[in-house]
Design a binder for these strands. Structure first.
Length: 572
DNA sequence: GCCGTTTTCGGCCCGACTGTTTTCAGTCG
């Protein structure tokens, strides 16, 4: 059984859940959660680290005990402490913790007093009115449990960033229109530009808190009100997304924004730094005893703990605080740094537009070049190009380039990587192109070893300029294929192959963690839209967001180079 | 269970809201 970092993390999380239900020392529980978080933010694979006999306790939150457990998971694929814990507390019972409003104490009470063992048991007990009879519970709790069970079963837990953007924009406008509102700002993982968002955190300043809260709970798209207080309200929108609204005072805005932007791990780390200086940080400000010393702006908050401003995208407690303290925060890439796009489809395969239309759109976006990369023949269902049609397209591009001014079309192709790692078109054709994006579109189920070898072999071909959407994942619908990304990263580095950061909101592939790893290995990244129609070209901003989360600077990304510089990077 | 530029023991981030209470526990972010 493969043991990815995420497997280790989820085992630690599950163990933490069980210990919590059992009433274990809360700090011990927290230690497991910290360990899980630390592990999932790691850019190295634990399997490799263990194999290389690295000292795992060098990573934050991993001590002797967790290091031993990680070794056990990597070596055996399971964790005996977790197996034993599951005997005591069943996974079905643990899963009840994921229902909003149910924590360890209540789950334990439901189990001990009512014999609840599963979601079905709970639903039945609540429907029969037994839950309300327990001390500490009541009719309201019982009803909300029933509602939550239905919601829990019906819907996805996290939403893609691009989906949430619409809700955020319309709701922000609605709130801004309310009288007495000065400022509306979305915080949370949305502001950190995380690829998926669990809920929307919105901050409001002004002088009529009651009315703003009222405006949210009465908003037409609200399905259910979870909480409605003086300074905080929570609602569920009709699409299932939870929105938390906070009213904050003007002079606490920076502290609140920092607090609610998170991540939680980053905030905890900042508060720990503050404690060293005998400061207390909360959402109202930074305090020295009773005295408030900062809070108006986020810059103030960071300054109070001796740090420069850290942009939201970096706030994951993945080394940004240390980097800030040492004055080596990256100067992150921005949308305006991009000189072109290197992955675009036309009508020739599964795109919607002509070369001319795309060229014009790219020029209007201020690009210097646009890489045309239609699919190849292996993807016959989307009209993939064989060598004849590709040769024709190359001619077309050359003719068009002769007429166009202000934009250059690059002759490219998104070449299928076949099952054995060979490329879908012969070398003599590929050599005529300016560059190739090579991608896996079939045979996702190969073993880890075979999939990895397949991709390495594809990169062996010097015509493979860019490895397209390297993991193949589709957020929320398809797992990445099983591939040793560490080896792929090293392989790309050794061969001078560029890795793509595909900007489609459901791909964002490479992800942030591997972008950072690639950067550390000196592997270059191409941020591409993978546009299939004109409107898709702008999706590239989501790629830029993800790149920023991956610590990438302009120099790490090939398509920040003007055309001549780019062409040099294409040669390998 | 983790951690340490006072420490290897004794700390460990902090506040709002809800429901069930009669002053607070549980949950959440």
């Amino acid at each position: 059984m493969p043991a990815h970092n995420s497997d280790v993390a989820s085992m630690f999380e599950e163990l933490a859940d069980i210990l919590e239900i059992e009433g274990a020392n809360p700090f011990r529980v927290r230690a497991y959660r910290n360990g899980a978080r630390s592990v999932s933010g790691l850019s190295h694979s634990l399997r490799d680290l263990v194999r290389q006999e690295e000292d795992l306790t060098q990573y934050p939150g991993i001590g002797h005990e967790l290091a031993t457990k990680i070794k056990e998971i990597v070596d055996t694929g399971s964790l005996s402490a977790l197996e034993e814990a599951r005997q005591r507390v069943s996974p079905d019972l643990v899963s009840l913790m994921h229902i909003q409003g149910l924590g360890p104490k209540r789950v334990k009470a439901l189990h001990d007093k009512l014999g609840v063992k599963s979601l079905a048991d709970l639903q039945q007990a609540a429907a029969q009115g037994k839950v309300a009879e327990l001390s500490g519970f009541g009719t309201k709790t019982q009803n909300s449990i029933l509602e939550e069970i239905e919601r829990f079963q019906g819907e996805e837990k996290r939403y893609k960033l691009a989906v949430v953007e619409d809700v955020a924009a319309t709701l922000s406008r609605h709130l801004e229109k309310q009288s007495g509102v000065q400022k509306v700002q979305v915080a949370g993982s949305f502001r950190r530009r995380k690829e998926t968002v669990g809920d929307l955190d919105i901050l409001v300043t002004g002088n009529r808190p009651d009315e703003v809260m009222q405006a949210l709970v009465n908003y037409e798209d609200v399905r259910q009100v979870l909480a409605h207080g003086q300074t905080k309200s929570s609602v569920i929108m009709k699409n299932g997304l939870q929105v938390d609204l906070r009213f904050v005072a003007q002079d606490s805005f920076g502290a609140a924004l920092h607090y609610f932007t998170g991540s939680k791990a980053h905030n905890i780390a900042v508060r720990r730094l503050a404690l060293d200086r005998e400061l207390k940080v909360n959402e109202y400000g930074v305090f020295h005893g009773e005295q408030k010393v900062a809070g108006k702006s986020e810059e103030e908050v960071y300054a109070s703990v001796g740090l420069p401003y850290i942009v939201p995208e970096l706030r994951e407690d993945r080394g940004e605080l240390e980097a800030a303290a040492q004055g080596r925060l990256p100067e992150l890439i921005q949308r305006k740094d991009l000189c072109g796009d290197l992955h675009v489809h036309t009508k020739a395969s599964d795109g919607k537009n002509t070369l001319q239309e795309l060229a014009q759109a790219a020029r209007d976006m201020g690009y210097e070049y646009l890489g045309i990369t239609d699919h190849t023949r292996n993807l016959s269902m989307v009209g993939g190009l064989g060598e004849d049609r590709l040769m024709e397209q190359m001619e077309e591009i050359e003719d068009l380039n002769a007429q166009l001014s202000g934009i250059t079309l690059l002759k490219g192709s998104e070449v299928d990587i076949l099952k054995d790692g060979s490329l879908d078109l012969p070398d003599w054709v590929l050599q005529k192109l300016d560059f190739c994006v090579c991608s896996v579109h079939t045979a996702f189920n190969l073993s880890r070893e075979k999939q990895t070898e397949r991709i390495l072999r594809a990169m062996d071909n010097s015509n493979c300029t860019i490895l397209g959407h390297p993991s193949g994942r589709l957020i929320g619908s398809r797992e990445a294929y099983d591939v040793d990304m560490e080896r792929v990263l090293h392989g790309a580095g050794e061969r001078g192959c560029i890795l793509e950061l595909n900007s489609q909101p459901d791909r964002l592939d490479l992800d942030d963690v591997y972008c950072k790893a690639a950067k550390e290995l000196g592997v270059k990244i191409a941020i591409s839209s993978d546009a299939h129609q004109l409107g898709n070209l702008e999706l590239i901003r989501f790629g830029v967001d993800q790149a920023r989360r991956g610590w990438l600077e302009a120099e790490d990304v090939v398509n920040t180079r003007p055309l001549e510089g780019l062409k040099k990077l294409f040669k390998r």
